[in-house]
Design a protein around this nucleic acid. Structure first.
Ligand SMILES: Nc1ncnc2c1ncn2[C@@H]1O[C@H](COP(=O)(O)OP(=O)(O)OP(=O)(O)O)[C@@H](O)[C@H]1O
Ligand SMILES: [Mg+2]
Length: 686
DNA sequence: AGGATAGGATTTTTT
DNA sequence: ATCCTATCCT
């Protein structure tokens, strides 16, 4: 079949390299190119080309870095090919692996061996796993504790080691093996403590009926490698694999994709090694750098034409790229400016303190808005969230509407987590984590400590509560004694929980179901919220109760909406846990709001007017110079940040700023210095 | 059950 | 400096 005839018109807006990539659909292909060269655009066109040429969308798997990116892909694809776009599988590694891989092969012998029964296991939220990890840490044996004290090792050190090992695909057994077999990379005493923690933690996860985010991927990788028939069956379903942001893939994710592509080898990856910025979370730049080694017949397509940014921005980006040391071979990493945008020089501003810096930026934004620029076309990027504090104050003071992109505060709120826990408890009574959280937030006369003390192995909190609800008063009279007060309360609670679940099992009415859950919350959770609010001042109190009610209502609305889309209750809960759901301010009018986000969160996005703030030597450099990669990664982060700009770019920093209540003296970031030297640009002192 | 208080953390993420 | 949490106390 000739792709040109069928797809020629849809790819008319592509340049020759992009077209080659979009129309080369068999075999391994890597599209590796700098920022703004149209990688993501090409990916979407390639998908559209395949569908137009007769490939069934159900055979296409597209993996993106965030849920939001997946939604946007599907949306843009729909514009090109219509409703068949909704039949492709698009999502993050975690959601795709959990839903389409682990859940689809519950009879896998590997899963059975690992004691994972997909019918009674749920994906655990980050907060849940952190809680279990902390408990495990406290239960470490005395020698381990002594070792930690002596070497001032904290939970975070052990956690990041565990995270690193699992991002590399190690199971506990394999991690232990590499210590026993004398791998020198990790201190064996340290590794021993990690193993002990890991063991305790896995037991707790199993007892809680939870599988954590890391394990979703590790377990899947092992399952596919141990049972190639499963990998091949997935390969038959997903005949075409596509991955965006390949530079931030970790080795387990790589193994999963390689396993599925084993037979057909139709693997299309897209990325830019100069934008690899998630190593702290296990991503490995070597995955993209080593692609050609793993697929020696792969077609490699490079692109250097940037269609996003004005020439001065490109000059700045090129200067940063020129200083990089970890590069894909056969390219100098330099971009050519193709966008027809009137050039405005990049400006670099140094301020005496963070206050002046913030008010300069707020003032600049106000000017642009006045000139008619829409808020959503302006963004401010920073390395870490505290950097933006002063700016937020200024924006509020000046009445400039803004939006924190990538903010998850909503899902961290107590009442939101309570509501999710309640949903989990209602529809997955075996979920002990959820049950315990519910128990801690309602007043049933049964404390969490009591349950923990009385809970036997292999029994659920639900069963424990059932037993509690049948406790009788001691009585000398014959006949059945009445229930204790606590037992009555527990009984009442379980009754309504059971009735709700039965309603779900027997009727298909999401609205009634959600009304039931809302009612449970009102009866059992609200009183505690109200009494807590009483202690605050009267006006604040009512506001906070109302806000909480609203938030609970919002979560339930999302849940109902997910059920309405045909998802099961379990899947709708997964959506909430994976935070694939919207947060409440998403249905407000957003276009007028200026965007504030971390540099990490800005990956893949673009804005007409861009401020990169806090570009100082403390935030944006390598503090621990012994880690060569940290320098490289921070430089890449700066590269990602500046390459978001379309028209104008302004880089700012201040010589003094407040950190943890103390004044911190800083100077310009070394990466800024590199750019200034390379481009000959000057600094304005504001 | 709920309040007070001491102690700890305080990049980057949302999967 | 400030916020959060765990723990102890009432
Ligand atoms: N051939 C082209 N002609 C005109 N505009 C293009 C072309 N290719 C891409 N663009 C535009 O350039 C911009 C950047 O494209 P895209 O986001 O796909 O780049 P990218 O390589 O994925 O960038 P990043 O590395 O930042 O993710 C978009 O606005 C896109 O519409
Ligand atoms: Mg992109």
């Amino acid at each position: 079949m000739n792709a040109d005839n069928l797809a020629g018109d849809i790819n008319a807006s592509l340049n020759p390299e992009q077209r080659t990539a979009a129309e080369c659909i068999e075999g391994p292909v890597m599209l590796v190119a700098g920022a703004g060269t149209g990688k993501t655009k090409t990916l979407i066109h390639r998908c559209a080309t395949m569908i137009k040429s007769g490939i069934s969308p159900i055979n296409i798997l597209m993996v993106t870095f965030t849920n939001k990116a997946a939604t946007e892909m599907r949306e843009r694809l729909r514009e090109m090919v219509g409703d068949s776009a909704s039949h492709i599988t698009a999502g993050t590694f975690h959601s795709v692996v959990y839903r389409e891989m682990l859940s689809r092969y519950p009879d896998s012998s590997y899963l059975a061996e690992q004691g994972i029964d997909m019918a009674n296991v749920g994906i655990m939220s980050d907060a849940d796993s952190r809680k279990l990890l902390k408990e495990s840490f406290e239960e470490l044996g005395l020698p381990a504790k002594a070792y930690c004290d002596e070497h001032s090792i904290g939970l975070s050190d052990l956690d990041s080691q565990m995270g690193w090992a699992r991002s590399r695909g190690y199971s506990l057994a394999e991690y232990r093996y590499q210590r026993v077999s004398g791998n020198e990379e990790v201190n064996p005493d340290f590794a021993l403590v990690v193993e002990e923690l890991w063991e305790l933690y896995s037991q707790k996860c199993r007892a809680a009926g939870g599988i954590d985010f890391d394990d979703v991927l590790v377990v899947c990788a092992h399952m596919l490698e141990r049972e190639p028939t499963i990998a091949d069956s997935l390969g038959q379903r997903f005949r075409y694999l596509m991955l965006d942001e390949y530079q931030d893939t970790n080795p387990v994710q790589m193994r999963i994709m390689d396993a599925i592509a084993r037979q057909h080898r139709n693997l299309f990856v897209v990325g830019d090694e100069k934008q690899s910025i998630y190593a702290f979370r296990g991503s490995d730049i070597q995955v993209i750098i080593g692609f050609l080694g793993r697929y020696q017949d792969a077609q490699i397509i490079n692109m250097i034409r940037n269609y996003r940014s004005a020439p001065p921005v490109i000059e700045c980006a090129n200067a940063i790229a020129a200083a990089m040391n970890q590069r894909v071979p056969n390219s100098d990493g330099q971009l050519l400016a193709e966008a027809k945008i009137e050039p405005t020089p990049v400006s670099y501003y140094e301020f005496g303190n963070d206050l002046r810096e913030a008010s300069f930026i707020a003032g600049g934004i106000a000017k642009r808005l006045k000139a008619g620029v829409t808020g959503k076309n302006i963004a401010v990027l920073y390395r870490s969230r505290p950097i933006k504090q002063e700016l937020e104050r200024q924006l509020i003071a000046q009445g400039i509407p803004y939006l924190l992109e990538g903010d998850t505060a909503f899902f961290q709120r107590a009442e939101v987590r309570d509501t999710v826990a309640l949903l989990r408890f209602v529809f997955q009574p075996w979920d002990n984590m959820a049950a315990l959280r519910v128990l801690g937030s309602v007043s049933l006369g049964v404390s969490v400590n009591k349950v923990n003390a009385g809970l036997g192995q292999d029994s659920t909190v639900y069963e424990f509560l059932q037993a509690e609800s049948d406790k009788r008063l001691k009585t000398t009279k014959a006949g059945i004694a009445p229930r204790t007060a606590a037992a009555k309360k527990v009984r009442a609670f379980l009754d309504v929980v059971d009735r709700t679940r039965e309603c779900y099992e027997h009727f298909d009415d999401a609205e009634v179901l959600v009304k039931f859950v809302a009612e449970i919350w009102r009866i059992f959770f609200l009183p505690r919220v109200e009494s807590a609010a009483k202690r605050a001042t009267a006006s604040q109190a009512q506001e906070s109760v109302d806000l909480r009610k609203q938030n609970v209502g919002f979560v339930l609305e999302q849940f109902q909406e997910a059920l309405g889309r045909g998802l099961t209750a379990e899947q709708a809960i997964e959506d909430l846990v994976l935070m694939a759901q919207a947060s409440p301010d998403m249905d407000e009018e957003q276009d007028g709001k200026v965007r504030l986000m971390t540099m990490h969160a800005s990956k893949g996005l673009e804005y007409d007017y861009l401020y990169v703030m806090g570009a100082d030597s403390e935030s944006l450099s390598a503090k621990e110079a012994e880690h060569f990669n940290d320098i490289e990664e921070n430089r890449r982060l700066f590269y990602v940040a500046v390459t978001r700009a379309k028209r104008e770019l302004c880089v700012t920093w201040s010589c003094q700023r407040l950190q943890h209540g103390q004044t911190l003296s800083t100077e310009q970031s070394p990466f800024v210095a590199e750019v200034l030297q390379h481009t000959g640009a000057g600094v304005v002192r504001g």
